[in-house]
Amino acid sequence: MKRLASSVSAVIAVCIGGSLWAAEPANYPAPRAPEKIYAQTCGYCHGVNVGPVIRGRELPPEVTKAFVRMGPNAMPAFRETEISNEELDALATWLQQSEADPKERGQ
């Protein structure tokens, strides 16, 4: 019972620290770096068996951009409102120049 009380109060203590967390002024997120977009979108599928490995293959940027906007077959399409043209240009170039990651697998 003592541990129960102390675990609960630990949670409560952490929460109180924040008090009312109003994200003011709430800003729109800034453009994201290619690594971040890869990690938070592409990399959930590519390199983990959902999609083919796409790093370290010198994929031409035009190919990457066409796949991202169209979403062929099982791949979802991504709109400009999700990945801006500016972000996609940088991502496609980064991907072309990227090294293969030996931990990734794909089919």
């Binding site: 620290g17 008090s19 009312l20 967390w21 109003a22 994200a23 800003n27 997120p29 709109r79 409102t81």
Partner: peptide
């Protein structure tokens, strides 16, 4: 009507 650009987290109340 694509509302994706309206992407602010306006408030989180941890308490």
């Amino acid at each position: 009507l694509d509302l994706k650009r309206m992407n602010r987290i306006l408030e989180v109340d941890p308490d």
